[in-house]
Simulated scan of single mutants.
Amino acid sequence: MLKKTAALAQPEVSHLVRKLRHLSGLSQEQFAVTLGVAFSTINRWENGHMQPSPLALKQIKTMLGELSRSSVVELQEQSQTLLNQYFSETESSTQ
């Protein structure tokens, strides 16, 4: 079955958020500003205390899509792997 964005289990969300933030080279504070949320929100996502909203997950998916078009091959590969792992093929192809 295809994974739906809103149906990600908490450990998956925590891993996804942390990996994307590290790929982006951003601190939790910088990542929060990028997504338009509070620093404490990013911290809660990464520590498994809270789920991102559907809008935040859409923004995360968009960021992964942008990284997958990077000129740096390693960023392309890692971000595409995360897109494939956490978002359905149908959703990924609409980027």
Rank of each mutant, 00 (worst) to 15 (best):
L64R: 11
P52D: 08
L26D: 07
R18C: 06
L75A: 15
G65R: 02
L20Y: 00
G48D: 07
L20E: 00
S70L: 13
P54V: 03
A32D: 03
T90S: 14
T62H: 11
N84G: 13
L23W: 02
Q30R: 12
N84E: 13
S53G: 11
L67N: 03
E46W: 02
L35V: 01
T90G: 08
A38R: 03
E66L: 14
S88C: 09
L82W: 05
T62N: 07
A32H: 04
V72I: 12
L55Q: 15
S79P: 11
Q76R: 15
S24A: 14
V13N: 00
S14D: 03
A56Q: 06
P52S: 13
K58Q: 09
H22M: 11
R44A: 07
T41A: 07
E74T: 15
S68K: 09
P54Q: 07
H22G: 05
G48S: 11
A32G: 04
G48K: 12
S70I: 11
R69D: 14
W45Q: 00
E29Q: 13
G48C: 09
Q76T: 13
R44E: 05
F87C: 04
S88Q: 06
V13T: 04
L75I: 15
Y86D: 00
S40T: 10
L20V: 12
R44S: 08
V37F: 03
G48M: 09
I60E: 03
S68T: 07
Q95E: 14
V37N: 06
L16V: 03
L20R: 00
Y86R: 07
E29S: 11
T41R: 05
T41M: 02
Y86Q: 02
Q78R: 14
S70G: 09
E46M: 08
I42Y: 01
Q30T: 05
L16C: 06
V17W: 00
Q80H: 13
R18S: 11
K19T: 04
E77Y: 08
N84Q: 13
A56F: 07
Q85S: 11
L35D: 00
L26Y: 06
L26P: 04
G25M: 08
S53E: 10
R21H: 09
S40H: 12
T90I: 10
L83F: 01
F31A: 05
E12Q: 08
H49P: 06
F31G: 04
V72C: 05
V73E: 04
Q85F: 02
Q30M: 06
I42E: 00
K61R: 14
V72H: 10
Q76N: 15
F39D: 10
F87L: 02
G25R: 09
K58I: 02
